[in-house]
Protein backbone atom coordinates (compact mmCIF):
# COMPACT_ATOMS: atom_id res chain seq x y z
CA UNK A 1 0.00 0.00 0.00
CA UNK A 2 1.38 3.44 -0.87
CA UNK A 3 2.20 5.84 1.98
CA UNK A 4 0.19 8.55 0.32
CA UNK A 5 -2.33 8.76 -2.47
CA UNK A 6 -4.25 11.53 -4.08
CA UNK A 7 -7.95 11.37 -3.36
CA UNK A 8 -10.51 13.49 -5.19
CA UNK A 9 -14.04 13.79 -3.94
CA UNK A 10 -16.84 16.25 -3.41
CA UNK A 11 -17.65 17.73 0.00
CA UNK A 12 -20.86 19.70 0.44
CA UNK A 13 -21.03 20.34 -3.34
CA UNK A 14 -17.41 21.55 -3.60
CA UNK A 15 -14.61 19.52 -5.23
CA UNK A 16 -11.62 18.73 -3.01
CA UNK A 17 -8.37 16.92 -3.50
CA UNK A 18 -6.20 15.62 -0.68
CA UNK A 19 -2.94 13.70 -0.62
CA UNK A 20 -2.84 11.35 2.31
CA UNK A 21 -2.39 7.78 3.49
CA UNK A 22 -5.17 5.72 1.91
CA UNK A 23 -6.14 4.27 5.28
CA UNK A 24 -6.51 7.74 6.89
CA UNK A 25 -9.97 8.01 8.40
CA UNK A 26 -12.46 10.15 6.51
CA UNK A 27 -13.25 11.69 9.94
CA UNK A 28 -9.68 13.00 10.33
CA UNK A 29 -9.49 14.28 6.76
CA UNK A 30 -12.72 16.21 7.28
CA UNK A 31 -11.78 17.63 10.67
CA UNK A 32 -8.04 18.19 10.33
CA UNK A 33 -7.29 18.64 6.62
CA UNK A 34 -10.51 20.32 5.54
CA UNK A 35 -11.26 22.06 8.89
CA UNK A 36 -14.85 20.81 8.85
CA UNK A 37 -15.06 20.35 12.61
CA UNK A 38 -18.84 19.94 12.74
CA UNK A 39 -18.31 16.18 12.39
CA UNK A 40 -17.57 14.82 15.88
CA UNK A 41 -15.66 11.86 17.26
CA UNK A 42 -17.42 10.09 20.12
CA UNK A 43 -15.93 6.61 20.19
CA UNK A 44 -13.75 5.92 17.14
CA UNK A 45 -15.23 2.45 16.68
CA UNK A 46 -18.51 2.98 14.88
CA UNK A 47 -20.76 2.63 17.91
CA UNK A 48 -21.97 6.16 18.67
CA UNK A 49 -22.66 7.75 15.28
CA UNK A 50 -21.39 11.22 16.28
CA UNK A 51 -19.12 11.16 13.22
CA UNK A 52 -22.00 10.39 10.86
CA UNK A 53 -21.83 11.88 7.35
CA UNK A 54 -23.60 11.06 4.10
CA UNK A 55 -21.43 9.22 1.56
CA UNK A 56 -23.19 9.33 -1.81
CA UNK A 57 -26.39 9.97 0.13
CA UNK A 58 -26.01 7.07 2.57
CA UNK A 59 -25.33 7.50 6.27
CA UNK A 60 -21.87 6.21 7.28
CA UNK A 61 -19.66 6.48 10.33
CA UNK A 62 -16.73 8.51 9.05
CA UNK A 63 -14.42 7.02 11.71
CA UNK A 64 -14.73 3.67 9.91
CA UNK A 65 -14.28 4.91 6.33
CA UNK A 66 -10.72 4.87 4.91
CA UNK A 67 -10.21 7.90 2.72
CA UNK A 68 -9.06 5.69 -0.15
CA UNK A 69 -12.65 4.48 -0.50
CA UNK A 70 -13.98 7.99 -0.89
CA UNK A 71 -12.23 8.71 -4.20
CA UNK A 72 -14.82 9.92 -6.71
CA UNK A 73 -17.60 10.03 -4.15
CA UNK A 74 -19.69 12.81 -2.71
CA UNK A 75 -19.74 13.57 1.01
CA UNK A 76 -22.28 15.68 2.89
CA UNK A 77 -21.31 16.86 6.38
CA UNK A 78 -23.38 18.85 8.86
CA UNK A 79 -21.89 22.04 7.37
CA UNK A 80 -23.63 21.20 4.09
CA UNK A 81 -27.13 20.56 5.42
CA UNK A 82 -28.46 24.11 5.63
CA UNK A 83 -28.86 26.25 2.50
CA UNK A 84 -26.90 29.32 3.55
CA UNK A 85 -28.68 30.71 6.58
CA UNK A 86 -31.85 28.75 5.74
CA UNK A 87 -31.94 25.76 8.08
CA UNK A 88 -33.04 22.36 6.82
CA UNK A 89 -36.45 21.32 8.14
CA UNK A 90 -34.76 18.71 10.36
CA UNK A 91 -32.42 21.31 11.87
CA UNK A 92 -35.27 23.68 12.61
CA UNK A 93 -37.32 20.88 14.14
CA UNK A 94 -34.42 19.88 16.39
CA UNK A 95 -34.36 23.43 17.75
CA UNK A 96 -38.14 23.72 18.11
CA UNK A 97 -38.65 20.33 19.75
CA UNK A 98 -35.63 20.24 22.07
CA UNK A 99 -33.84 17.56 20.04
CA UNK A 100 -30.41 19.04 20.77
CA UNK A 101 -29.10 19.34 24.31
CA UNK A 102 -25.30 19.21 24.63
CA UNK A 103 -25.10 19.12 20.85
CA UNK A 104 -22.26 16.65 20.42
CA UNK A 105 -24.45 13.92 18.87
CA UNK A 106 -26.52 16.50 17.01
CA UNK A 107 -24.57 16.71 13.71
CA UNK A 108 -24.68 12.94 13.25
CA UNK A 109 -28.24 12.75 14.50
CA UNK A 110 -29.44 15.50 12.12
CA UNK A 111 -27.78 13.73 9.18
CA UNK A 112 -29.26 10.39 10.25
CA UNK A 113 -32.72 11.95 10.48
CA UNK A 114 -32.35 13.72 7.14
CA UNK A 115 -31.15 10.49 5.49
CA UNK A 116 -34.05 8.59 7.01
CA UNK A 117 -36.59 11.09 5.65
CA UNK A 118 -34.92 11.00 2.23
CA UNK A 119 -35.40 7.23 2.08
CA UNK A 120 -38.82 7.23 3.70
CA UNK A 121 -40.69 10.55 3.72
CA UNK A 122 -43.27 9.37 6.27
CA UNK A 123 -41.73 6.87 8.66
CA UNK A 124 -43.66 5.32 11.53
CA UNK A 125 -42.39 5.82 15.08
CA UNK A 126 -40.83 2.35 14.98
CA UNK A 127 -39.11 3.17 11.70
CA UNK A 128 -37.78 6.39 13.22
CA UNK A 129 -36.44 4.48 16.22
CA UNK A 130 -34.71 1.95 13.96
CA UNK A 131 -33.46 4.64 11.61
CA UNK A 132 -31.71 6.45 14.46
CA UNK A 133 -30.49 3.36 16.33
CA UNK A 134 -26.90 3.88 15.20
CA UNK A 135 -26.72 7.31 16.80
CA UNK A 136 -26.33 7.46 20.57
CA UNK A 137 -27.58 10.40 22.61
CA UNK A 138 -26.91 10.52 26.35
CA UNK A 139 -28.83 13.74 27.08
CA UNK A 140 -32.33 13.54 25.67
CA UNK A 141 -33.55 9.98 26.12
CA UNK A 142 -34.43 10.36 22.39
CA UNK A 143 -38.06 11.41 22.96
CA UNK A 144 -37.52 15.02 21.81
CA UNK A 145 -35.52 13.72 18.84
CA UNK A 146 -38.39 11.45 17.73
CA UNK A 147 -40.70 14.44 18.01
CA UNK A 148 -38.29 16.53 15.93
CA UNK A 149 -38.29 13.92 13.15
CA UNK A 150 -42.08 13.73 13.16
CA UNK A 151 -42.26 17.53 13.07
CA UNK A 152 -39.75 17.76 10.21
CA UNK A 153 -41.69 15.12 8.33
CA UNK A 154 -44.79 17.33 8.41
CA UNK A 155 -42.94 20.42 7.21
CA UNK A 156 -42.30 20.70 3.50
CA UNK A 157 -38.54 20.17 3.10
CA UNK A 158 -36.50 23.30 2.43
CA UNK A 159 -35.30 21.89 -0.89
Amino acid sequence: MPDAMEVSFVVNAGAVQVTTHPMARLLDVLRTTLHLTGTKEGCGEGECGACGVLLDGRLVNSCLVPIGQVNGSSVTTIEGVASGEQLHAVQQAFIDCGGAQCGICTPGMVLAAAALLDLNPSPSLDQIRIGLAGNLCRCTGYMRIFEAVVTAMRIKPAS
Binding site: R31, L36, T37, G38, T39, K40, E41, T77, I78, E79, V81, A82, L87, Q91, Q92, F94, I95, D96, G98, A100, G103, I104, T106, P107, V110
Partner: peptide, 21 residues
Protein backbone atom coordinates in the same frame (compact mmCIF):
# COMPACT_ATOMS: atom_id res chain seq x y z
CA UNK B 1 -42.50 29.48 27.44
CA UNK B 2 -40.48 27.13 25.23
CA UNK B 3 -38.22 29.76 23.66
CA UNK B 4 -35.56 28.42 21.25
CA UNK B 5 -32.36 27.15 22.89
CA UNK B 6 -29.95 30.08 22.74
CA UNK B 7 -27.07 28.12 21.18
CA UNK B 8 -29.44 25.88 19.20
CA UNK B 9 -28.53 27.12 15.72
CA UNK B 10 -24.81 26.70 16.43
CA UNK B 11 -25.43 23.14 17.58
CA UNK B 12 -27.63 21.99 14.69
CA UNK B 13 -25.31 23.48 12.06
CA UNK B 14 -22.04 22.13 13.48
CA UNK B 15 -20.73 25.63 14.21
CA UNK B 16 -20.62 25.15 17.99
CA UNK B 17 -16.97 24.98 19.06
CA UNK B 18 -15.90 22.16 21.35
CA UNK B 19 -12.34 21.89 22.64
CA UNK B 20 -11.24 19.36 20.03
CA UNK B 21 -12.34 21.83 17.35
Amino acid sequence: RAIPRREGVAKVTGRARYVDD
